[in-house]
Design a binder for these strands. Structure first.
Lengths: 221, 221
DNA sequence: ACAAGTCTGTTGGATTTCCAACAAAAATGA
DNA sequence: TCATTTTTGTTGGAAATCCAACAGACTTGT
């Protein structure tokens, strides 16, 4: 368990907690390690989640299978990332998606009930952890709302404009860099890459913006 | 302030808190009332939010204006609903959208810092409130992720299938009722109503499902 | 029962996206 | 440096969406 401390130190859950305290927190939270072979299902749709998970090694895919068996990749979890924080409250209902190991993986599990309930030994960093979970969810919430506002746009053009507009705001400059290449941006906005590239070209021709690689500039009017 | 107790009692924030306790909480949380005329801006993009708000009367619109001035309605807040809970943590960054009164409105404001910090007088229901906020955000998080998974689908058909599939799961039956009429469902999935109606017709013709008004049945294979 | 209004399904044409394929440009690595 | 791979832009045809318009079904209120 000890070998995971450097990784945990960098996670959102243990942010601000020292090495020694992490170790004591691990036993306080009843932490355990589980390993999954490639393709193995970690959580299945319909299960009730009573643990918080941090991925240590490998890659997990959050995917859904609909009524007719069509598979769909929703998200990918990488080492250091958390899963299950939205299910931390009691009665949050069953999982609606599957979590499957995309490659051989190992993950740390923490008892959710022990997180929300302050432990009897009143370990000093417990409240810090609660706050960290709170911050994480809150943060994710804002990002989701924002992303939803891009995706709600009907056309590729509008999706691009709303996303780029927000990035400009966020970076307080009409010249800014985005953290995606074309394919990633297309995936993020859920549109076809070639059509998006095409639309970017049009926007540039119309004088609305300019770009070189992942650096963009927005022009007024 | 007292007149709002019946309304507050039904909100997520004060769920499980008795009438008397709500009153004492109001002063503990430094509550205040603010009124907005139709069209007035409650919060502006770029501001830092340091208060949690519950709408008492009227309707608020959460809307964005992009770099070129295009307006876009993102959400509507109705009486009893909360706004700002995702900004409750310190350093959550500036608001990216505007909040505007769609009609004459009145709202209750609570000091965010007083919510997260346990009050000196240690009022008994404070921890309850913190949990309620936690639950609300966590809940919203799950709903947002779910909705995002519908919207990420490329075609109207896939959006419909993924949404209906989930509803069937959620209601544990291939026969179920949805809380939308056609226009609302189209808005929810962010597609054109007539095109959606058309697609529903095709799905029925293909034998995948059947519907009457807002009651749906899914068929295997 | 009637009128007015709302909701739903359907259609046709303009527009847009998707998809596959390919070429140019850039990055990578031996 | 040169060859290979990855990324980006461009294109053309097929398919889907959007939009406007309309008609029938259903609701509502008088």
């Amino acid at each position: 368990m000890k070998k995971y401390v450097p990784l945990l130190k960098k996670t959102k859950l243990f942010s601000g907690v020292g090495d020694d305290d992490i170790l004591s927190m691990l036993s306080c939270l009843n932490a355990s390690v589980r390993e999954y072979g490639k393709g193995q299902v970690a959580f299945r749709q319909g299960e009730t989640l009573r643990e918080l998970m941090i991925l240590a090694e490998g890659r997990l895919h959050i995917q859904r299978e609909d009524y007719w068996g069509n598979l769909n990749l929703l998200n990918e979890i990488r080492p250091g990332e958390m899963f299950g924080e939205a299910y931390i409250v009691p009665n949050s209902g069953p999982l609606l998606n599957d979590v499957v190991a995309a490659e051989d993986s190992a993950a740390l599990f923490f008892d959710m009930d022990r997180i929300l309930t302050v432990c009897p030994s009143a370990c000093p960093f417990h409240t810090r952890i609660v706050k960290n979970v709170f911050y994480t969810i809150s943060d994710k919430n804002r990002r989701l709302v924002q992303k939803l506002s891009y995706m709600a746009q009907r056309s590729t053009r509008e999706k691009l404009l709303s996303y780029l507009s927000d990035e400009a705001k966020r970076q307080s400059s009409s010249f800014f860099t985005i953290p995606f290449n074309r394919q990633q941006l297309a995936d993020f906005l859920s549109v076809d890459r070639s059509a998006m590239s095409n639309e970017l070209g049009k926007l540039r021709d119309e004088g609305l913006l300019d770009f070189h690689k992942n650096q963009f500039t927005l022009y007024e009017l």
